[in-house]
Design a protein around this nucleic acid. Structure first.
Lengths: 168, 168
DNA sequence: CACAATACGTCAGCTTTGTTGACATTCCAA
DNA sequence: TTGGAATGTCAACAAAGCTGACGTATTGTG
């Protein structure tokens, strides 16, 4: 069915064997651990989690965004996001302001201390990414991004594309 | 400090700008969601979670592995793994046998129904991976793997390498 | 042999982060 | 103007991680 002999395939299709795909799956699993390891250490000190990191990241990326918009980017329920957001607001890292046009909306911004944490997390994560990029070289990086983009859900890719070309 | 003007860098270093790195970070985040989406759907039906998937994956990959070995691959505590393993054994998906040489060890294998679930999960995940690989092409795939490997922790990479060359 | 170390399992309790359900507020359109 | 849709909050629960403590069987060592 899925595995098997894979007889006389063209040399060019060898990268599509189940074994190659399995290696890719494992690489993805192990790499994601490294990807989150450094920010996780910083977050643990402040007793925050990855959910806080994600919220901070995307608020930084899209200042003034609404809760609803953040929700669809993060792909979680509003209740789940709300808990995280509440602690960030209480701790003075995020400012929530009532919308001027639509008063139901809350617009989210990082405060100076929120921006400072964002910077610390971002720096830690980028350091590792930079080392990996440097080790692999520009051609590999292009391929890396290509495969990742092809792996996203349709809807997710829209979010990604929308943000991609913000500060080109 | 980390961002800034980045003046007159060689063309060859443009892929290391903070903006490029940020895109890579977001690509990683969004792609990982796609990466887990299909198995998650299957798991939800059977009220299992990703933790079960990971255990099943690596037991399939290293049949007869011990609890301790699985622990160090997965990077979780034994209490956490035990909870998952117990349900898998109760449900008849995993068999745990006392070691022949060292009777303290338990060797883990997938039962036929465990192997069937592994196959279903694996097929779903590979389908997406295959589509992404095919869309990106062999050169991109090579780069993808290179960057991921460079992103791993030192210790994690050992686990990865050890498994990589099993069924080459 | 006695005893420390190892491998595994389990109990209790806590945290983070996801979920659903219920509800208040605000806006808009019939 | 009023009822429904949209936005956001509170409460309660579940999955899956964690620490700490302890029991048991087995192994290896002084």
């Amino acid at each position: 069915m899925s595995d098997g002999l894979q007889p006389q395939m063209g040399q060019s299709l060898l990268f599509l064997t189940d074994e190659q795909l399995r290696k890719g799956i494992e690489a993805m699993f192990f790499a994601y651990r490294g990807f989150t390891a450094d920010p996780d250490r910083i977050l643990a000190e402040k007793s925050y989690g990855r959910a806080h990191h994600r919220a901070i990241h995307f608020i930084h990326r899209s200042p003034g965004t609404t809760v609803n918009n953040l929700l669809s980017i993060l792909g979680v329920t509003k209740q789940s996001l709300n808990r995280v957001l509440r602690t960030l607001i209480e701790d003075g890292l995020v400012a929530s302001t009532v919308g001027r046009q639509d008063k139901r909306e809350r617009h989210l911004h990082l405060t100076p201390s929120g921006a400072a944490l964002e910077r610390a997390l971002s720096d830690a994560q980028r350091d590792r990414m930079r080392a990996a990029y440097r080790a692999a070289g520009p051609a590999a990086v292009a391929g890396f991004r290509q495969v990742l983009e092809a792996m996203m859900d349709e809807e997710t890719r829209h979010h990604y594309e929308a943000m991609k070309d913000r500060a080109e």
